[in-house]
Design a protein around this nucleic acid. Structure first.
Ligand code: ZN
Ligand code: ZN
Ligand code: ZN
Ligand code: ZN
Lengths: 126, 126
DNA sequence: ATCGATAATGTTATAATATAACATATGCGC
DNA sequence: GCGCATATGTTATATTATAACATTATCGAT
């Protein structure tokens, strides 16, 4: 892992919510990161390897929370609008059904996004 | 449907791919639409009603392709990176499994996003 | 050791997407 | 008409992402 990737990855590991590229930029200014591209480049490499995931619904990034989400499993994110937590899960049967749905239509899937937005257990019971 | 919503909705119905808010703005300038906010406001109302869907993976918008995707069904989009088509499907069993996954964690789901990116049948066979 | 290729980094500028804040107008029930 | 809600218009600005180009580090092959 390169210098910048390490900085970005460690920051994301410590974060308790998805961070935007500009959140990351601001947090790492005193570590030598000065421009958006430095962040986006690190994120691109990390995401390519599965070390971080982009959360489309919030334009943010999180460190992978699973030991090995690299198989054929799709990551499923539950995103709390209140506390902003983004919890990652996998579910083999959903993955399989989704794959089958694509296969039925001869669709060659390269990437799958599953995100559920709502209130987490803690936040709904306030 | 208000004036601006009608303009935006009809444009999306004719489009063969997701349009960005600024695509829409440009296309409707000569119909009186002059500012991004006019488009975003129309899109927000239309999306609220389920007449259009936002495609998170491409920051674009499409008209709903199904007669009634309003039930408890989640829309599943297959997004071709080549021709940019965005085809909408539903699948009750995936919806159910996803709902169960949330319920297990006491997560109160408000909105679900499922998007598959890849190559459509036509484009993969070129 | 040094040449040359590749990957990584840095910097500035700009593109693309989305919202804030405020002003005006339009329609409808009373 | 008046009051209220909804729709619209306008300007400015915030947020997210990439283009284009220059520089530096790394490392194996000669
Ligand atoms: Zn993961
Ligand atoms: Zn929460
Ligand atoms: Zn639909
Ligand atoms: Zn295609």
């Amino acid at each position: 892992m390169t210098q910048n990737e390490t900085l970005v990855y460690h920051l994301l590991c410590q974060a308790d919510r998805p961070l935007s590229a500009y959140n990351i930029l601001d947090a790492l200014r005193d570590k030598g990161i000065r421009a958006p591209l430095q962040v986006y480049r690190a994120l691109a490499k990390l995401a390519e390897r599965g070390a971080v995931h982009r959360i489309e619904s919030v334009n943010g990034f999180v460190a992978c929370q699973l030991h090995d989400c690299g198989g054929s499993e799709v990551s499923i994110f539950m995103l709390c609008t209140q506390c902003e937590r983004a919890d990652e899960f996998t579910d083999a049967s959903i993955d399989k059904k989704l794959q089958a749905l694509g296969d039925d239509r001869k669709f060659q899937a390269a990437h799958k996004v599953i995100e559920i937005t709502g209130l987490c257990a803690d936040c709904r019971s306030v």
